[in-house]
Simulated assay, not measured.
Amino acid sequence: MSKHIAIYVRVSSKTQDHRSQLPDLERWADSQDEPIKWYKDKASGKTMNRPGWNELESNIRSGKVSQVVVWRLDRLGRTASGLTSLFDELQIRKVNLVSIKDGLDLSTAAGRLMANVLASVAQYDNEVRSERQAAGIAKAKAQGKKWGGSKKGTRTKVTDDRIEIIRHMKEKGKPITAIAKAVGLSRPTIYGVLEQF
């Protein structure tokens, strides 16, 4: 049976697109000799139950996949238990995992150690974000603040892709005003995002 490399791409919501992940993945794919199949999802990383992922998992279990490639490990999921059980299953089935941005390769001992550390970090980030949101909401309610006021559909969210762009632009030394304009968010929001890193 011929095997293929599975490239998995996920964004968290239907309003996001895969464009920020594709250039790196396409460059990586161009350097491979083995056949490649792309799997894509627009779904939360809090669950492993997603259409694209379910198809990929089925192909892994039927022995059709030689390795799984992602842009960053958090594209697979955001729970440590989900990711570590996935790492174990991939190793048992002799399927390698490559994460381009994390510089991760499960075929090495260092890569396996790093994968488990990153899985724990992904879960920690998720829990801290949830705690921060809950604390912020509680504080705002205690101060009598209410939500709303803008027209329906005009609220801009700080998505994973926007966070990546903010971090990248900041690393390149771009001013906060330019970053805010590029991602369509306010300067205080940009400062808030950068404080998390």
Rank of each mutant, 00 (worst) to 15 (best):
M1V: 12
H4Y: 14
A6V: 11
A6Q: 02
V9F: 09
V9T: 12
R10Y: 00
R10D: 04
S12K: 02
S13W: 00
S13F: 07
K14G: 10
T15S: 06
R19W: 09
Q21V: 00
Q21D: 00
P23D: 02
D24C: 06
D24W: 00
W28N: 03
D30E: 10
D30I: 13
Q32F: 04
P35F: 00
P35H: 00
K37F: 14
K42A: 08
K42M: 13
A43S: 04
A43D: 05
N49R: 15
P51D: 02
P51R: 08
P51A: 08
N54E: 08
L56Q: 10
L56T: 04
E57Y: 11
S58M: 13
S58C: 09
R61F: 01
K64W: 08
V65Y: 01
S66P: 03
S66F: 03
S66T: 15
V69Y: 10
W71D: 08
W71A: 07
D74Q: 02
R75G: 01
G77K: 15
S81E: 05
S81F: 05
G82I: 02
L83Y: 05
S85D: 00
Q91F: 00
V95A: 13
L97F: 12
I100M: 07
G103K: 05
D105P: 07
S107Y: 07
S107T: 15
R112G: 13
L113F: 05
V117G: 05
V117R: 08
A119V: 04
S120F: 04
Y124P: 06
E127D: 04
E127M: 10
R129G: 11
Q133A: 13
A134Y: 07
A135G: 11
G136M: 13
K139S: 12
K139M: 10
K139W: 07
A140Q: 13
K141G: 02
K141Y: 03
G144R: 13
K146M: 02
W147V: 12
G148R: 03
K151G: 15
K151Y: 09
T154L: 13
K157I: 12
V158N: 10
T159H: 01
T159W: 03
T159M: 00
R162A: 08
I163H: 00
I163M: 02
R167E: 04
R167K: 14
R167T: 02
H168M: 09
M169W: 06
M169I: 11
M169H: 10
M169S: 06
K170N: 09
E171T: 06
K172E: 04
G173Y: 08
K174G: 03
A180K: 06
A180C: 09
A182I: 04
V183Y: 01
P188E: 06
P188V: 14
T189E: 08
G192K: 05
G192E: 05
V193C: 11
L194D: 02
L194G: 11
Q196R: 15
